[in-house]
């Protein structure tokens, strides 16, 4: 069977051949331009050096970074199975979300510390939606609950929850957790929403930030100190 060409395809052949040559030329130019001088250490094909664009870098170091990292670990140990890795909870199981939750984003962590430490029960309204029929276990590490979280871990996990998935509230310190636990020492029952509503989210139990006192307030405060305490303060001031 001898193949022989038929007439009428001369034009098509020419088009194909011209196209092929054109494609070859393109190939040569492409290889010439984008090969990074055939250097084995050059991974960017751009002929004018690496892109100068910065991808989200150069951000100031986040002071809460260490706590958020530790909080992620604590979250993984305790919270993720119910509240999910994206903080959206599981509404079908009556597990409220943490993302955008008004409880999480309150000014201060007093209620959150209580919930994490001692658990929660009963119906609760989170961001306008009511969740009932489920309960949250206590997570404070005690003799009965050896797999629980320490005070530092509770502070870290709350810092993580309050600053992830679009949440932006402040951090939580271990001292705040310690103070709340001091206030609620001996409590074993899970909290209900009604009880927590009566507790202010911030203030109380936290070390008051140093604010300027009026002279009268200063006098009142000094009156409460004993003589030895006064002497110690004055000695300290003189040393500085």
């Amino acid at each position: 069977m001898n193949p022989h060409s038929r007439s009428g395809f001369g034009l098509l052949n020419s088009v194909l051949l011209t196209g092929s040559v054109g494609l070859l030329l393109w190939g040569g130019l492409y290889v010439g331009t984008y090969s990074g001088r055939f250097d084995g250490n050059e991974f960017s094909e751009l002929p004018y050096g690496r892109p100068a664009k910065v991808v989200g870098g150069g951000a100031a170091a986040d002071p809460l970074d260490a706590q958020k990292k530790a909080g992620l670990i604590a979250y993984g140990k305790s919270c993720v199975a119910c509240h999910q890795a994206d903080g959206n909870g599981n509404p079908s199981l009556n597990i409220p979300p943490l993302t955008g939750s008004d409880w999480v984003l309150a000014d201060g962590p007093n209620r959150m510390i209580r919930i994490v430490a001692h658990g929660m029960q009963g119906p609760v309204k989170v961001s306008g939606q009511v969740y009932q029929g489920n309960a949250m276990n206590p997570w404070l590490k005690t003799a009965d609950n050896p797999a629980g979280l320490t005070e530092q871990e509770i502070a870290d996990v709350l810092t993580y929850v309050r600053n992830s998935w679009g949440n932006k509230a402040g951090g939580v310190t271990a001292e705040q957790v310690k103070a709340v636990l001091g206030e609620t020492a001996g409590r074993t029952d899970a909290w209900t929403a009604e009880e927590l509503d009566k507790i202010p989210a911030s203030g109380g139990g936290t070390a008051p930030a140093p604010t300027a006192l009026t002279p009268d307030q200063l006098k009142e405060a000094l009156k409460k100190l004993s003589a030895d305490e006064l002497k110690a303060i004055l000695d300290g001031l003189k040393a500085n």
Binding site: L16, S20, Y30, V31, Y34, R37, F43, E45
Partner: peptide
């Protein structure tokens, strides 16, 4: 991927040029 740019460039060019035998 994590290969030198020229390896990828050569492969891309050859990939395009393989349209020639396909069409022919």
């Amino acid at each position: 991927g994590p290969l030198p740019a020229w390896v990828i460039t050569v492969s891309v060019a050859a990939g395009m040029l393989l349209a020639i035998p396909v069409l022919l």
